[in-house]
Amino acid sequence: MIKVEHLVKRFGSNYALNDVSFEIGEGEIVGLLGPNGAGKSTTMNIITGYLSSTSGSVEIGGVDILANPTEAKKQIGFLPEQPPLYGDMTVSEYLHFVYELKGAKQPEDEHLCAILETVKLTDVKSRLIRNLSKGYKQRVGIAGALVGDPKVVIFDEPTVGLDPKQILEVRNLLRNLAKKHTVVLSTHILAEVQSVCERVIIINRGKIIADEKTDAITRTIKDGYEYQAKIIGPGSEVVSALRAINGVRAATLTGERDAEALTYRIETERGCDVRRSVFELCREKDWPLVGMMPIATDLESVFIRLVDKSENKAR
């Protein structure tokens, strides 16, 4: 659906993007992740035709954005970092304007009502945009992006400045959108990518440093697995027995208690699944094993590691 090839964007002698290529299929929900100033917004602005690239090409649904911008833009709904809203219009006037601007073909009133419902704006539709709170404004921006039912929706930091409840609502909305649209969102919040996106493209200093499935990225990049086990038994003895298991690199008591059980943190060698051995050990020693689960390394640490790695390489 979106094909980006060898995108380069130079501002003077600075490279905002340096040879960025990726492809996004239909119905995918992809997160662009990166620290501030990494080139996320630039990428999105180029995809949507707001900026042009120094070199490289962008195709939306097979249409080149430079060769045929009008056709390409028809397939895109875009919410920029700062929602482009006219404060002097009411929500409903604004959406009618966007509808006309995009030359949408759907039956106007029904289509706009459906969007108002989707983003929960029906109650405020006749209020002036300038008087709405930040959260509502953001939703008006999202609604604007959805007008005309574009195949691709692109959101630049859609949850910035929202309160926690609104953030959850927007994330749910994004997940629902992915059923009908191809969704691309940029963020520097890792939890967002983890909870919403199937795939993540990590950008740092204008270069892609990782492009993988969200759960794969957490798994493949970290150096080893970690598990948490809850075992009823004598603490120090359990720790040394755990350490003796083949493949275990470290085992420690976390200090947490769950009723009688103590909680242990087990670190293993890369790609080594020791759950079976831990279970066997507990059965042998007659220590009831009441719980065990892998600890997902959060994207945060993966991210920092990746960024460090790419920066070291650059040096």
């Binding site: 056709e71 833009k73 875009f78 920029p80 700062q82 809203l85 006219y86 601007l101």
Partner: peptide, 14 residues
């Protein structure tokens, strides 16, 4: 100033 030009320039309007 209000960045609304981004809406106009990314809409299918030349």
């Amino acid at each position: 100033k209000t960045r609304t030009e981004q809406l106009l320039l990314t809409a299918p309007v030349s």
